[in-house]
Design a protein around this nucleic acid. Structure first.
Lengths: 233, 233
DNA sequence: CGTTCTGTTGAATACCTTCAATTCGCGTGG
DNA sequence: CCACGCGAATTGAAGGTATTCAACAGAACG
């Protein structure tokens, strides 16, 4: 029953937020140029400076996008999950990836070759608008990241992350979903520092830590921290 | 001769890189929705969190886009000059400006109302592609900014700025074109620190400083700095 | 059940900031 | 044309936050 696989794939494309609201015709054209790929945990998808010939959309799993310092320290720019595209910058500007991409959890992804994709964008304004919305959201996100890195100290960044970058999944509990070392890299610091600050926050009754589960005990105090208040010694 | 003013304005639009390569029809439609505005030095164009009803393109002058910490410290995100659009993020995502904008040098600008502009984008794929290119470039720029702020120390950031963010206008001389305090804010530091580092670099024969003119004396050493090497004490 | 990666803890250090006091530079007005 | 005044820039001393380095504990995985 060869039809099943094809139908399933059409839905796969249609499910991607980037392609939301596109007419069937466009979805079919996208399907025509899409390539399914399995990406394994630990795999480097691309490196900074590498020539790009297309971009990816995750269907499952997670990928981290990051920069490396000359001494090997890593700054995570994004962690993307299902439905999110990555590596699309060099499709529209420049031709090289501006950062590294490594798979955190084994993923199913769809790859779109640059040339064919650009042709589709040229022919369909609503696809272009979806893209503009996504890129704009990322610019907004970057302004927050820069603000965080430059204008806040680590406890403040952590509080902000716990409160906003997760959402209250289960009332007052946050599941980091990534290793603490990775969280440190996302917050622009190192594991040792993060560990010490988690300690302090626990000692002051703001949170409780059990592995990757963090209970938000004193939400008010966390909010004051996120607003810029200092963490007591 | 009313025609002259109109023709001049058409050229004004056509000259903007964002609108490069657009057919006359589109340029005329853009002209139809554009509003000319004079923006004075020191004027706040918008504040973070403010509702946006359109965006700007500078024809002359300069604007700085920045964030403020809870204690009033400023981090500059961009300094834009002639031909560059700003405030366009909330046109496509969200509805509020993610940062502040203040005029550094009195400017002539063109304002495009959100609604009408989006209509034009929907009708013209090449306009959309131009926009995608600009937003992508900014994302690329932000990856560099984050890298700089998070993975480099101030001397390295300064060296990078001197070498790349200006271009060799007059062989080996850089004109900052902004106050040193503003440069500090752009580099994610404060005037005192910048001053001390300019001193050190001068003492070690890397540069010579005369007001806003900086001569690059030892370009090799600056390049090594930008690559991550440490500045001697 | 051992090996390896992740996370924690302590002490020393480095970098940058803060605060305060001058000094410099430049536009304005006498 | 020079003097004044104000913001910008510089300098010094002290302090704070985060990093580095090293050692150890713990968890995950095969």
């Amino acid at each position: 029953m060869p039809g099943v696989a094809i139908v399933k794939t059409v839905e796969m494309i249609a499910e991607i937020p980037l392609f939301a609201g596109l007419p069937d015709k466009q979805v079919n054209e996208l399907l025509g140029i899409a390539e399914e790929r399995r990406l394994d945990r630990g795999q480097m998808i691309f490196a900074e400076g590498e020539l790009a010939n297309g971009f990816y959309v995750l269907r499952s799993g997670r990928v981290k996008i990051f920069k490396l310092s000359s001494e090997g320290k890593e700054q995570i720019l994004h962690i993307f999950g299902p439905g999110e595209p990555f590596g699309e910058v060099p499709v529209f500007a420049g031709e090289r990836f501006p950062a590294y991409a490594e798979i955190l959890e084994t993923s199913e992804a769809v790859f779109f070759p640059k040339q064919s994709f650009v042709k589709l964008v040229k022919s369909d304004p609503s696809l272009a608008l979806n893209l503009l919305a996504i890129l704009s959201k990322r610019l907004k996100y970057f302004t927050q990241l820069v603000e965080s890195l430059s204008l806040k100290e680590v406890p403040q960044r952590l509080a902000t992350y716990l409160l906003f970058f997760r959402g209250s999944e289960e009332e007052n509990s946050v599941d980091l979903a990534i290793a603490k070392g990775q969280l440190a890299s996302l917050l622009g610091t190192i594991p040792e520092t993060l560990s010490r600050i988690l300690n302090k926050m626990t000692a002051q009754g703001l949170i409780e830590v059990q592995g990757r589960q963090i209970k938000l005990i004193d939400r008010k105090a966390l909010e004051r921290l996120a607003m810029g208040e200092k963490l007591l010694v």
